[in-house]
Amino acid sequence: MKANFDNKIKLYGFNNLTKTLSFNMYDICYTKSAKDREAYISYIDEQYSAERLTQILTNVTEIIGAHILNIAKQDYDPQGASVTILVCENEIEETSIDALKKDTPGPLPEIVLAHLDKSHITVHTYPEYHPDEGICTFRADIDVSTCGEISPLKALNYLVQSFEADIMTMDYRVRGFTRDITGHKLFIDHKINSIQNYIPDNIKNNYNMIDVNVYQENIFHTKCKLKQFDLDNYLFGYTKKDLDSKEIKSITDKVKKEMDEIFYGKNFDESYYK
């Protein structure tokens, strides 16, 4: 029996499928001195404090149509923050389900569509820096895990636009199974061939993107690296005008090397850009 994903599937009992989106973003910066580095870390901690991250996750909750049960948040010393939100599900209207099943980028947080159950949303931040090279890297890990009709992929559009990252890695997996009214097992309840289907074209055009998908296991992976490079976007507290040509070349190589190592998941030696 083949499930019809274009209409609401008639299930026996609750939809037990667990859908998990893991969204990881990286922001790269170059600082000239220890003082600049400390200023950058302080800036990141302020921009992505537990309070602000809570607001971002609250917006995610609204987009996927959830009702908040509990919020736990924490700023850390010396740096970083975490937020965890537990959410639950209510009755879902058929029109809302139809809108959510479309293989299109999700909305920005103006409309609440439905409610979720046995679900959670978490974020953890990791500001860090190279001890000698002046490179600073800010990483944020967000997990949106839902159990029920709605896919957390609908929050991806908003997450991408909230962080404007240099590097992004995204994983989406559907686990478990549910049953239709005949008792037939369903291991996925929506069409998907790539996470990229849920990212708007104007965003995709800004990134080089690679997919690694395992369709038979309902596992999807996409990673992205920003195409355009302007060194001014990676300097903290000064601009290219403050540098000579040799410094510009050296810093550019360091920043690009950092981005490539994160994107490809491996270290490159000193001759990488020579």
Rank of each mutant, 00 (worst) to 15 (best):
D98G: 05
V174Q: 11
C147I: 10
Y26T: 11
G13V: 02
D132T: 15
E38H: 04
E51M: 11
T182Q: 14
T239S: 13
D242P: 07
D189R: 00
G265A: 11
D232I: 02
D269H: 06
K246D: 14
R37Y: 06
R52Q: 12
S151N: 13
N59F: 02
S119H: 04
K249H: 04
N90K: 14
D230V: 07
M25R: 13
M25K: 11
I142W: 06
A34G: 10
I64W: 00
G183A: 04
V214K: 15
I28N: 06
K227M: 07
L235H: 01
E164P: 02
Y273V: 02
E164Q: 13
I192W: 07
H67A: 09
F14H: 08
I97P: 06
Q196Y: 08
D211R: 14
I167N: 05
I9A: 04
T18L: 11
Y215N: 12
S162M: 08
S33W: 02
L21T: 09
I41W: 00
H120G: 13
L153G: 07
K204C: 13
I195K: 11
K8D: 03
R52Y: 10
Q161S: 12
K266G: 06
E217N: 14
L243S: 04
P78Q: 01
A81P: 07
A72Q: 15
I195V: 14
F177E: 04
K73M: 09
I28Y: 12
H221I: 04
N90F: 10
K102G: 00
M170P: 07
Q74I: 13
I150T: 15
K191S: 07
E93M: 07
C136M: 12
N4A: 08
F177K: 04
G237D: 12
E94S: 13
N197A: 10
L57W: 02
E94Q: 08
Y43M: 08
T58P: 02
Y76P: 05
K254V: 01
I111W: 06
D103L: 14
Y272N: 10
V214T: 13
F229P: 01
N197I: 01
C224I: 01
D103W: 06
F5R: 03
A165R: 03
E258K: 06
R52M: 06
L156F: 10
N59Y: 08
L57D: 10
A114I: 04
K241W: 01
T178Y: 09
E164I: 10
K185G: 00
A140R: 09
D36I: 01
L226A: 13
D143F: 05
Y30G: 10
I56E: 03
K225P: 02
A50C: 10
Y126W: 10
L113R: 14
M170R: 07
L108D: 14
N218G: 09
L113K: 12
